[in-house]
Amino acid sequence: MEFKGNEDIEAPIADVFGAISDFEMMERSALRRSIEVQRTGDPAHPEAGLTWDLNFAFRGKQRQARLVLADYSPVTGMTITGGGSGLDGRMEVELVALSPQRTRLSVWLKLEASTLTGRLLLQSLKLARNNLNRRFKLRLADYAGLTEARLKSTA
């Protein structure tokens, strides 16, 4: 199952990359959503590899996942892979400078089942594909808007 989305942000590409690679801020955001996060690695040097162990409730069950920063290309993007509870995923984030003050944020997420339980979970997600696609795009637009607002307030 794949999700794709693009959003334009009114800020230079380097500033946008700095905002999306603020891993400590993302960890705090996850904690506010009742997701337990344990990081391994130094966020000041993410190119050496970061991992996160997550514990969260989804559809009435406690789930666990491990995320790995698989590729880190300063200013242009990053790739995060992960798996847990029968699902494996890969998320690619790419930044493209449209102009000196405008950046396109492109996100691609792919989920695959690795167990029978994962297949059942993925099948139930596929039944709600339209709703999930809409929510993914809304969430990406919201994230881009928050990032743009945060960058404007620090400028």
Rank of each mutant, 00 (worst) to 15 (best):
M1K: 00
M1P: 06
K4D: 09
N6W: 02
E7G: 02
D8H: 04
I9H: 01
I9L: 08
A11P: 00
A14K: 15
D15M: 07
D15P: 07
D15Q: 14
D15L: 13
D15F: 03
V16L: 08
F17M: 07
A19F: 03
S21W: 04
S21I: 04
F23S: 05
M25Y: 13
M25D: 13
E27M: 01
S29R: 15
R32Q: 15
R32K: 13
R32L: 14
R33C: 02
Q38D: 03
A44R: 14
H45D: 08
H45N: 10
E47G: 14
E47S: 13
E47D: 15
A48G: 02
L50I: 09
L50A: 05
T51Y: 01
D53A: 07
L54P: 02
F56R: 08
F56N: 02
A57R: 11
F58S: 07
R63Q: 14
Q64D: 07
R66F: 10
L69Q: 00
A70R: 10
P74W: 06
V75P: 04
V75A: 03
T76C: 04
T76N: 07
T76W: 00
T76H: 03
G77F: 00
T79Q: 13
G82V: 06
S85F: 06
G86Y: 05
L87M: 04
L87A: 03
L87Y: 07
L87D: 01
G89Q: 10
G89P: 04
R90E: 13
M91D: 00
M91R: 11
L95I: 11
L95G: 11
L95W: 11
V96S: 09
V96C: 01
P100E: 07
R102P: 04
T103N: 10
R104S: 09
S106G: 02
K110I: 12
L111N: 07
L111M: 04
E112W: 05
S114G: 08
S114H: 13
T117V: 14
G118F: 08
L121M: 14
L122Y: 06
Q123C: 08
S124G: 13
S124W: 11
L125H: 06
K126R: 12
A128G: 15
A128R: 13
R129H: 09
R129V: 00
L132P: 07
R134H: 13
R135H: 06
L138G: 15
R139Y: 12
L140W: 12
D142E: 14
Y143C: 02
A144Y: 08
A144I: 01
A144S: 04
A144T: 01
G145L: 01
L146E: 14
L146Q: 15
E148L: 01
E148D: 08
R150F: 06
K152F: 05
T154M: 11
A155N: 09
A155P: 07
